[in-house]
Design a protein around this nucleic acid. Sequence first.
DNA 1: TCAATACTGAAACCACAATTTCAGAATGCG
DNA 2: CGCATTCTGAAATTGTGGTTTCAGTATTGA
Lengths: 281, 281
Amino acid sequence: MEGKSVAARIHDAIHRLTPAEKRAARGLLGAYPTLGLAPVAEFGSQAGASPATVLRFVSQLGYKSYPDFQRALREELEERAKSPLQRAQSSAAGPGGDDNFLGRFTAQAADNLRGSAELIPPSEFEAVCQRIAEAKGQCYLGGGRFTDFLAGYMEAHLRLIRPGMRRFDGRPATRADQMIDVRPGDTAILFDVRRYDPSLLEAAADLTARRAQIILVTDEWMSPVSRYAKLVLPCRTALDRTWDANGSLFTLVEAIIARTTELAWPIASKRIGSIEPGGVP
Amino acid sequence: MEGKSVAARIHDAIHRLTPAEKRAARGLLGAYPTLGLAPVAEFGSQAGASPATVLRFVSQLGYKSYPDFQRALREELEERAKSPLQRAQSSAAGPGGDDNFLGRFTAQAADNLRGSAELIPPSEFEAVCQRIAEAKGQCYLGGGRFTDFLAGYMEAHLRLIRPGMRRFDGRPATRADQMIDVRPGDTAILFDVRRYDPSLLEAAADLTARRAQIILVTDEWMSPVSRYAKLVLPCRTALDRTWDANGSLFTLVEAIIARTTELAWPIASKRIGSIEPGGVP
DNA sequence: TCAATACTGAAACCACAATTTCAGAATGCG
DNA sequence: CGCATTCTGAAATTGTGGTTTCAGTATTGA
């Protein structure tokens, strides 16, 4: 119990917290850990709760007093400031279990992110967003076995901000009939990573024949679809010898969504407003 | 003068400081910024100076009071936690062309990754993977409007390594009939991020009533579903005031997949081998 | 609908931490 | 060497911020 991170304690306790206390918890997690280092009054007002509630919240976490809680926060901060080497020694060298798998995994994923940003020329990225934002013609989306979900995620967002989004759904066999609507000047965004999907390659050939322009999102080894693509966005996916990770593709998709929304805001804001008053996710 | 970092002020003032004050300065820089967030008395004793000296030191730095000095420290910390994207927005709100949107976006996303790894206790992560890997009972997956794709992605991978993966598909209305199969001891992995989905909350309540154990993947503000969840994995998603990004959830999912595969390898290898000779994506 | 219970924040209270004072120690200078 | 000046920390003082109480409000269940 003693050596438990504040964040961990919140997870443990969140069940028994009352609504107002949860506001405090969320406030703290959202501005972690700084808000907890402020005086109770400020903590309270920032989190939308009274000082008394904040205090009860802290007590639920198992701290004797607010200063006690703050001490824990400071110690955590100190711990975090220690050099990565120090940290690795104290945590990762644990017995038996793979103590910090998640930390190592995310660190590598972060590397991939950085690598992807370097791999993709800004002009290419910008061109893609422009093209989507100008909303001319239909825009088709499709991917392989796993990457299809990326296509789905992207479609779910983009259909909010522009008309004419279509998704190739189902297995390759049923794709042929979805092609008949494709017209010259349409856009297709395809996802293809290693163990490249042969049916996607066919689809790409077909789309090209119909004069659609292809945007390809792929990995650093470049799907053969690139042969047909007008614009290519390659991402770093290598994790280690055996694993690839598609997190960088996902983030790229989100970046495209964000940038496209910016570009298309004049039109997009109306569409969104007409559906759900408030804004975007 | 106002917008100057504390460290910078120390540097400026260091030559005017008396010996004891220098000890305070040195102490603070050595344990920056935590020591400054402690009460004066502790600061003093840690740095080998009296409270009074610490106070004079702080005053030399140009702060009206000790609390004032602490506020500056906290704001700095907050600023540092802010991602490159946010910082860029506040300062480099450049003209027309957004030169390196992608770079800033990915940098931000990488920060979220790191933040998520800190927010999730390793024990929690490990417990989740264990539970999935032991492959007891059914394992259901479901999400909200956008996060449903994460559930889909996860299922597509996990069904390779263990039996009994099921996905809540379709809209809430059709969920009720999917619940009838749920049995005590089953597992449900739910995804819920801000603009929390009320229907998911219902589903969670229902699942709990049927004695299924819930694993929740959410954002730092904690979906209300956490009330029912046995295990909670919160991720950093904040991008700026208006946008959230789910890239960190995606990477978490991939980390779970990777770790679970490791844990379940004895069983998983057979399954995979029987389908596609070679390995996993 | 009503009673019982739990939750919440305003205000009073109290304690402790920030500030000030001052006498003694150290340092520098005639 | 001794006076003047600056520096320093112990102790008194003050005020802010933590804590507690309590009455009002919402929530739950009968």
